[in-house]
Amino acid sequence: MENKIRVIVADDHACVRMGVRCLLEQIAHVSVAGEAVNTQALAELLDACACDVVVTDIGMPGIDGESNAIQFLRRLLYHTPQLPVVVLTMIHQPSILMGLLQHGVAAIVDKRDITASLVHAIDAALTGQGYLSNHARAAIAKAGTPQPRAGVMSAGEWKVFTMYVSGLTIGQIAARLNRSAKTISTQKRNAMRKLGLETEADVIDYACQIGLT
């Protein structure tokens, strides 16, 4: 079949990439144009390989030492809004899922729904329609209507946040970065607010979901 939908698949787990490839190779109108194991590889592949849709995890190692792919996807969606992005994830935190949609992600597929939903998500994304798999839709609906997150974290806020979830105290982070504890505490609170996290339990849950701990 001519004019197949060219898909790039990005995930740091080989078994997931293999499963997605096997699934998509059974679909007549879809072809896998390439695979990436992290955001650096994804960025290089996007420069070298034409594609129509990106299917990507967000828990992959990021560029410039980032611990996940969210910041990279924000930049990608900002600079190439015409390229549909389907997020394939196990994350079920409503504020994070809503944030992805607010930044322009075309579809979100929970990995528990992958077989039934991924092809539908790709087709919907290509035609400009939004799509949520069953588990993703249920996670958002369970929280009612989450408030939009207040802005995007700065590099400094993200650095402080990742250091904090790695186990460092506010005082230890302040000493390492040569800043005041008050400044570090403010950056940590700002990061939590922008991620839609209200409690320390939320922080731990989020960190586990995206592979920071």
Score class of each variant (00 low, 15 high):
Gln209Thr: 05
Met90Asn: 13
Met192Gly: 06
Val119Ser: 13
Gln71Gly: 01
Pro61Leu: 06
Asp12Cys: 09
Phe72Asn: 00
Gly104Tyr: 09
Ala121Gly: 01
Gly62Asn: 04
Asp47Lys: 14
Met1Cys: 11
Leu83Trp: 00
Val152His: 08
Ile114His: 00
Glu157Asp: 06
Gly59Asn: 15
Asp57Asn: 07
Ile122Cys: 08
Pro94Ser: 11
Pro61His: 03
Gln129Leu: 05
Glu2Lys: 15
Ile108Trp: 03
Leu118Tyr: 01
Gln102Asp: 15
Ala10Phe: 08
Cys22Glu: 12
Val105Ile: 10
Ala10Thr: 09
Gln147Trp: 00
Leu77Glu: 09
Leu197Glu: 07
Leu118Pro: 00
Thr213Asp: 02
Ala43Trp: 06
Val152Gln: 11
Thr162Lys: 04
Gly59Ile: 03
Ala33Gly: 01
Asp123Thr: 11
Ala175Pro: 02
Thr115Pro: 00
Ala139Pro: 01
Ala141Val: 09
Ala207Tyr: 10
Cys22Tyr: 08
Thr115Cys: 13
Cys15Trp: 12
Lys111Arg: 13
Ser133Tyr: 06
Ala138Phe: 03
Glu198Cys: 08
Lys194Ile: 00
Gly196Ile: 01
Ile91Phe: 09
Lys159His: 13
Arg17Thr: 09
Asp205Met: 07
Met1Asn: 11
Tyr78Thr: 15
Pro84Glu: 00
Met60Trp: 03
Ala150Met: 08
Val203Asp: 01
Leu212Tyr: 12
Arg21Ser: 14
Gly196Met: 04
Thr56Gly: 07
Lys142Gln: 14
Glu200Val: 02
His92Phe: 02
